[in-house]
């Protein structure tokens, strides 16, 4: 599935919810289902510090695709993080670097991306793209 196909699928999933509770319960569930990041990857280097919650992001490449693993100490952020991982993980460095992430806004969760200082999500997106760019230049 392409990055945009995954984004469209998430948008469709969320279109089913007509109240905030079911929407957030779904995000919370996704957060709970995200496999916890192994402790060895919860390093100072992998941490993206928000003012309130912390996000850890670990990236690996098999030479072709980049895979992300991530975690957060706050469950809603963790749910949002799991969506970002789902959308971007397993794609080439180039695809990641050039991805246009529109799903958060379409779902109506863009305020979480805008809260740069409080949850570190915007920094996480930037960091994922930076990994894309870095692996891209390594490959070339």
């Amino acid at each position: 599935m392409t990055i945009n196909e995954t984004q469209d699928e998430l948008i469709e999933d969320f279109a089913l919810f007509d109240d905030w509770e079911s929407k957030y319960e779904y995000i919370i569930d996704m957060g709970k289902q995200l496999a916890p990041l192994p402790e060895e990857f919860k390093t100072e280097e992998n941490i993206i510090k928000g003012c309130q919650s912390r996000v850890w992001l670990h990236a690996e490449t098999d030479g072709e695709n980049v895979n992300f693993e991530a975690d957060s100490d706050a469950i809603i952020v963790k749910g949002l993080v799991s969506m970002l991982v789902k959308v971007l993980s397993g794609h080439t460095a180039e695809q990641i670097a050039q991805a246009d992430l529109y799903f958060m806004e379409r779902i109506g969760l863009h305020q979480h991306l805008a809260q740069t200082r409080s949850n570190g999500l915007a920094s996480m997106v930037k960091q994922m793209k930076t990994y894309g760019l870095a692996y891209q230049s390594l490959n070339s």
Binding site: W20, E21, Y24, Q52, S53, D73, A74, I75, I76, N119
Partner: peptide, 13 residues
């Protein structure tokens, strides 16, 4: 067992 940020987000809703 609940992170304060989750409390803030869900109260805001």
């Amino acid at each position: 067992g609940i992170h304060h940020q989750d409390i803030g987000v869900l109260l805001d809703q």
